[in-house]
Simulated assay, not measured.
Amino acid sequence: MNIIAPVSTLMSTRLITVNPDDNLEAVKTHFDEHSIHHIPVVRYKKIVGIISSADFNHFLRGFTRNEQDSLLESVRLRAWKAEDIMTKKLAKVEVSDPIRTALEVFKTNRIHALPVEENGELVGIITTYDVICALAEEEIKLEDYNR
């Protein structure tokens, strides 16, 4: 992996997002139906927050799985909005920033996802998973291995 390449070479652009006013039932649906761990919260193409699966699970903690609790969970999910649990103070990178910048932000802040912007608008997301996949796909050169 070339760490001076732009983050655009690794970022995901097929984003699943929610609006700050969307209820948490919509957030739950996205987490349940897609294999994702972060949902950007967007208003007019601008990122205003992010909800991680850990944030969401923290919100749900304390519920057991009997019929009455299931009803209470459903009511709670419809009553709360994405903006109520999203992380608001976000680290972000620009589409042209080098991957090295994203790695430094991940390391320093111990986060796992970074929104990627271009001209102030959300255009992608880069995650530690993206970095791991890129590293795992690299070819191992025998001469490098024998050193």
Rank of each mutant, 00 (worst) to 15 (best):
A5M: 04
A102F: 02
E121Y: 06
A26S: 08
F59Y: 08
A136T: 02
L72A: 01
N119E: 15
Y145M: 09
N66W: 06
C133G: 12
V18P: 08
D22G: 08
F63K: 00
L71A: 03
E143Y: 11
L71K: 06
E117D: 12
A102P: 05
S70M: 14
V27K: 05
I39L: 12
K141P: 11
P98L: 09
I140H: 10
I125D: 05
L122E: 13
G124I: 09
H58I: 08
F106Q: 05
R14F: 04
T64G: 05
L77D: 03
A134Q: 12
D97Q: 09
I47R: 03
P6W: 13
I126W: 10
N23D: 15
E139A: 14
P20C: 07
D84W: 03
W80Y: 10
S70G: 15
E25A: 08
I125E: 05
P20N: 12
N146Q: 15
E121S: 14
G124N: 02
I50A: 03
H30A: 12
A79G: 05
D84R: 06
N119V: 03
A54H: 14
V75W: 09
D22N: 11
T127C: 10
A54E: 12
V131R: 01
S70F: 13
P40F: 09
D22H: 11
T13S: 04
L103E: 11
T29Q: 03
I36H: 11
I16Y: 09
I3A: 10
S53G: 06
S35Y: 10
L122H: 10
H38V: 09
R43G: 00
L122I: 14
N146I: 15
D21C: 00
T17C: 00
H58Q: 11
E73N: 09
I140S: 10
H34D: 02
V105A: 12
M11F: 01
L122K: 07
S35E: 11
F59W: 03
F63R: 03
T101G: 12
T127H: 03
D69M: 15
H30M: 08
D130C: 07
K92R: 11
G124R: 09
E143H: 06
P98S: 05
S35V: 06
R76P: 00
M1T: 04
K45T: 13
G49R: 00
D21S: 13
A5C: 06
R61W: 15
A79K: 00
I50G: 01
L72T: 01
